[in-house]
């Protein structure tokens, strides 16, 4: 039961009304429950930020480290004990901004874990400043005249860095999100899921996107499936969230490859 994984005494969630984090947490815990993962064999690692508080609400093992470093903490945890099911939860500040270097190397290194990056297009916890995914022209607390930089297309970055499983969903389409997380768990190796989520308190307010339901509608209206996007021009795709699975291929993970080295050395020593 999903409630077995929820630390109910810590409820209510500290997230703002209309925040998408609860939807993602629920989708994750549903998947953990469906697999029958136990509190003992599961570790949830988080960074710092609104989504980085997710570990507060789980009954599994958890590791709440530093801003942007959740992936390297997870790398150590998984490599030290490969029997663990390791989930790394990051925001866009964590995942691609301060932790961008860790993200691309984690994708390349290919340690067997699931990384879920909730992208709400700004730094929510610190009050709505721009992040590495904030789109050009967007208004934030630190881009009051419109953002002059471009935001990352995170899935393309992670894909280019060599991750074997890369997908994007939204908190609007919970059925799809659930499936993407499920596939990420099934996939052996570094599995990355980006989730587009609203921040009505900051990004929504600053950019006059309306209240929570309106922002949900805004995400829905701007979501394009990968299949549909294939026939759209760059101009037509500007400001759109393309969802679906971008990468899904077999690739030997770090732990498996390294264990072969250990076994080979053991064999040579025994000879």
């Amino acid at each position: 039961m999903i409630r077995d994984y929820l630390l109910e005494e810590k409820l209510p969630l500290f997230w703002c009304a209309g925040c998408g984090n609860g939807i993602v947490l629920q989708a994750l815990l549903r998947n953990i429950d469906r697999r029958g993962f136990t509190r003992e064999n599961t570790v949830i690692t988080t960074g710092i930020g609104c989504w980085g508080k997710a570990d507060d609400y789980v009954t599994t093992n958890s590791f709440h480290g530093t801003h942007g470093r959740a992936l390297p903490f997870s790398t150590g945890i998984k490599l030290a004990n490969p029997s663990l099911n390791v989930f790394t939860l990051m925001g866009d500040g964590d995942g691609i901004t301060i932790g961008g270097n860790h993200l691309i190397h984690a994708a390349r290194r290919n340690v067997d874990l699931v990384a879920i990056m909730v992208n709400n297009l700004n730094y929510g916890m610190t009050g709505g400043q721009y992040s590495g995914t904030t789109p050009k022209h967007a208004i934030t607390k630190t881009s009051p005249y419109g953002h002059v930089e471009n935001g990352f297309d995170v899935c393309r970055v992670v894909q280019a860095a060599g991750a074997p499983f890369v997908a994007r969903g939204t908190v609007f389409d919970v059925v799809q999100l659930d499936k993407l997380i499920s596939k990420a768990i099934d996939h052996k190796g570094f599995s990355f899921v980006e989730v587009i989520s609203p921040c009505p308190t900051h990004f929504g307010r600053s950019n006059k996107l309306g209240d929570a339901p309106k922002m949900m509608q805004w995400i829905k209206d701007n979501t394009v499936s990968r299949e549909k996007a294939a026939n759209m021009s760059a101009e037509e795709l500007r400001g759109k969230f393309v969802t679906g699975i971008f990468e899904e291929r077999e690739q030997e993970d770090y732990g498996t490859a390294y264990q072969k080295v250990i076994d080979r050395l053991r064999g040579e020593a025994a000879e």
């Binding site: 570790v43 690692t45 590791f63 480290g65 530093t66 470093r69 992936l71 390297p72 903490f73 997870s74 790398t75 150590g76 945890i77 998984k78 490599l79 030290a80 004990n81 663990l84 270097n101 860790h102 190397h105």
Partner: peptide
């Protein structure tokens, strides 16, 4: 930064 993090993670995992 990542090295220190991985180290701590590994230690937490035993």
């Amino acid at each position: 930064i990542g090295s220190m993090a991985a180290l701590i993670g590994a230690s937490a995992a035993g």
